[in-house]
Amino acid sequence: MSSFDAVPVWAALLVGACLVIGAAITLAGTIGLARFGTFYQRIHAPTLGSSFGTGFVLLASMLFFSVTETRPVLHELLILVFVIVTTPVTLMLLARAALYRDRAEGNDVFPEPAAPPDGAGPEQNEPPR
């Protein structure tokens, strides 16, 4: 472990707080992943880590390197942009795949409406598996 004496105390407090908050939010997201009952509920959980968890950890990293290198370090923004753009895409693909598999097995969680519905289709909770 290297020495961080060159870092001012305010920066150390800020970096430490951001790191711990980001890590805690990511942990909460995976706990949700483990606790929620159905797949469609579980798909919401990792978004916690990919929105605020990643945001806080990257903020900590940007602050830390900006202070230690005494110039703005912004390349972490690339990871942030990348995660923001890709997470919805992968989750959508996965949700569609899950829906397709459920429908193919005749285990229809939400039946396709035959005609354009005026309002919303029948509401129903997914039956517990």
Partner: peptide, 27 residues
């Protein structure tokens, strides 16, 4: 779609181009 999925409480599941209806799962 990206907005709905990036918000943790909701997920975009499927879009039906024939009926222009989107299926969203709300937590």
């Amino acid at each position: 779609a990206s907005i709905i999925t990036a918000t943790p409480g909701s997920a975009w599941i499927n879009y039906n181009a024939r009926t222009d209806t989107v299926l969203v799962h709300v937590l």
